[in-house]
């Protein structure tokens, strides 16, 4: 589904990712872990098409297409979802209306008719029930005045609405208390299936107690220095990152 080949990329001319290669298939969950500054978020930004980040060399092939050629909106329409580390507040835009616009953008792209607010509400309600979310997520403006946990839950709601083939969740667990983490993780687990894939970018092993990855990759100084199964996460938890970074 996704093939990253020797990706070199960065920000304002500085190389942060120094040769990343990764292969992700349908139905797989990959965790990317690493200390602060290792390049985890840069990878997420590159995959989502952030205009301030640049690719120096390498390729990213998604479903046979060059992902890097697509604009941020076209990546979304092609089925790539980015869960933000810091979701942006958009005052004055009702959250339900925002979700409907995003949903309709996808329908239009598929050559289908847009849904009116009433029809969309049925879909929204179903997803909110699935995730155990309260009505306030319909009534309030998008992320406006939301707590950290509410913002992350709202990201998962968007993921549920857009049903992406590939989701990249950037530090979705950061800043969450254990209750909020459980809600978010349960939501992700409910949305996961054999037809989609998930990249979890995280700093903390704790998230992986709730969402079981098939593969764990450790990122350090812009390179993947170790890959393994979920047991690798536990080693990291017990020993920290130092044993890996010093031996490399």
């Amino acid at each position: 589904m996704l093939e990253i080949k020797d990706l070199h990329a960065g920000f304002e001319g500085t190389e942060i990712l120094k040769g990343i290669s990764l292969s992700i298939n349908k139905g797989e969950t990959h965790a990317i872990m690493g200390p602060n500054g290792s390049g985890k978020s840069t990878l997420a930004k590159i995959l989502s098409g952030h205009p301030s980040y640049e690719v120096f060399s390498g390729e990213v092939i998604y479903e046979g297409k060059n992902l890097l050629d697509l604009s941020a909106e076209d990546r979304s329409l092609a089925g790539v979802f980015m869960g933000f580390q810091y979701p942006v507040e958009i005052p004055g835009v009702n959250n339900a209306e925002f979700l409907r616009m995003a949903y309709n953008a996808r329908l239009v792209n598929e050559g289908k008719d847009e849904l009116d607010p009433l029809d969309f509400d049925d879909i929204l309600q179903e997803k909110m029930d699935l995730l155990g979310m309260e009505n306030k997520y319909k009534e309030r403006n998008c992320n406006d005045g939301f707590s950290g946990g509410e913002k992350k839950k709202n990201e998962i709601l968007q993921m549920a609405i857009l049903k992406p083939a590939l989701s990249v969740l950037d530090e979705t667990d950061s800043g969450l208390d254990i209750d909020a983490l459980r809600v978010v993780a349960n939501g992700v687990n409910k949305l996961n299936n054999e037809n989609n894939a998930l990249i979890l970018i995280t700093h903390y092993q704790r998230l992986l107690d709730y969402i079981k990855p098939d593969f764990v990759h450790v990122l350090s100084h812009g390179k993947i220095i170790k890959s393994g199964g979920k047991e690798l996460a536990h080693e990291l938890e017990a020993q920290g990152y130092d044993w890996l970074t010093t031996t490399n």
């Binding site: 989502s48 098409g49 952030h50 205009p51 604009s71 941020a72 909106e73 990546r75 979304s76 329409l77 979802f81 980015m82 933000f84 979701p87 942006v88 958009i90 835009v93 925002f98 616009m101 995003a102 953008a105 996808r106 792209n109 968007q158 857009l162």
Partner: peptide, 19 residues
Amino acid sequence: QLFYLRTRGLSEDVAKEIL
């Protein structure tokens, strides 16, 4: 904000209009 809306599949023009 513009980028956030675009990652949800909304074109740049539509995102600008919404904001």
